[in-house]
Design a binder for these strands. Structure first.
Lengths: 217, 217
DNA sequence: AAAATAATTTAGACTAGACTAAAAACAATA
DNA sequence: TATTGTTTTTAGTCTAGTCTAAATTATTTT
């Protein structure tokens, strides 16, 4: 249907739109796609021609409704495959991304539907991000940064903000993973580090960590 | 590593080599790839440059050892995915091919290895074709038409060539299905019908049937 | 063995998607 | 408002992979 490149542009535009809540600039997109601004301009013209985006010179770009629908479907596939890799094939959550980047482009309605069913219609991927349903509907996740919780609150780790390999490996080392229960014991005023109880053990968490961990409760 | 096109050429050459047991002609390859002979010539030159094939003008092409290894790995992935689709995702054996054609190009050693494990190290795909192991070794024989077996040979029904409703219903009626054991008792010279033992009972099978049933042994 | 036919390769051109370098538009500041 | 700096677009080029048409080599027939 659409080329690999087109799909990657759609996905990138989608994510940037979500992040900044407005039109996406050519430069921002070029950076995200790891390409040059001039290439982006070329591509946007072609995609506008195909009604995937709304683009006017010098005015940034937005997904059209067709483009958004397509992008969400790619995101849906990406996240379903991530669940598959972690739950069925023993991948750890920091290994799944690059494989899912490939799998998300597989074209088969039936495959996606059956995979969803096989996995038990999961609501979140291994990073805690919500999985759109077959109609593209995203039931918005109520998650907060650990940083924003106050003493005596508790919740379950559902995702990460920073998903670099380094961060994910750090979490692994400290036995922090999806689903673990975290309770705030106290918060230091001066450096904003927290004393938390994680699965029974008490640990100190710096703000650089707590600002990157999503908790739902 | 290699482009989608290169992988598809490798696979096509591999299958044609298996079929005819000699170098593959430019035209045969063009037909298989649904492209023009001139395009094939261009591609073969590039692939020879990369040491994937042995090619000399006007002399046809053969896979190099590197090319063969790569091709077999693609075939391995294709067949593993077919098993996955049929056994886990409720695909029927005639629906899997085009999806597997996409999935076979996913690059991840770990994915392939874990998928293999997840499926219990299957030896054959849903069409009865053998699945190469991680080292590229193919241990099992390929499937044959029932028609080509000789008395005292036996095997297991692994597929059909003709998949019309009529034929499948005929098979149903005679309790012939995937997985049943079939042994050849004798073969009539004049009409080439066969006397076979199927799951204990002896039956006569006409050549129009035996020419459409695949057996592995 | 020459002629006819078939198979293959070459030459030149096209498209998608990228690039560099330069020009144009927009934004910010004096 | 004029100037400077940043962002975006244009113009022209490149590569992978394809194509058509023409030329070349192989094969078959006479």
């Amino acid at each position: 249907m659409y080329s690999l490149s087109e799909e990657n542009y759609l996905k990138a535009i989608y994510h940037l739109e979500q992040l900044h809540k407005k039109e996406v600039s050519t430069n921002a997109l070029a950076e995200k796609m790891d390409t040059k601004a001039s290439s982006v301009t070329d591509m946007l013209k072609k995609m506008a021609e195909k009604n995937l985006v709304n683009y006017k010179k010098y005015q940034g770009v937005q997904l059209s409704s067709l483009g958004k629908e397509t992008a969400i479907n790619i995101v849906r596939k990406h996240r379903l495959w991530e669940v598959f890799l972690v739950e069925k094939l023993n991948f750890s959550w920091d290994e799944v991304h690059e494989v899912a980047e490939q799998l998300e482009h597989i074209q088969s309605k039936k495959l996606t539907a059956e995979l969803d069913k096989f996995l038990g219609f999961p609501k979140r991927d291994p990073h805690g991000d919500p999985i759109p349903d077959a109609q593209g509907k995203i039931t918005l996740a109520k998650k907060k940064l650990l940083f924003d919780l106050v003493p005596s609150e508790e919740g379950v780790c559902v995702g990460v903000k920073d998903s670099t390999k380094e961060f994910l490996q750090y979490l692994d080392k400290h036995a922090i993973s999806l689903g673990v229960k975290i309770e705030i014991i106290e918060k230091e005023a001066f450096d904003q580090s927290m004393l938390v109880k994680i699965e029974g053990t008490i640990k100190r968490i710096t703000s650089s960590i707590s600002k990157n961990l999503y908790i739902s409760y």
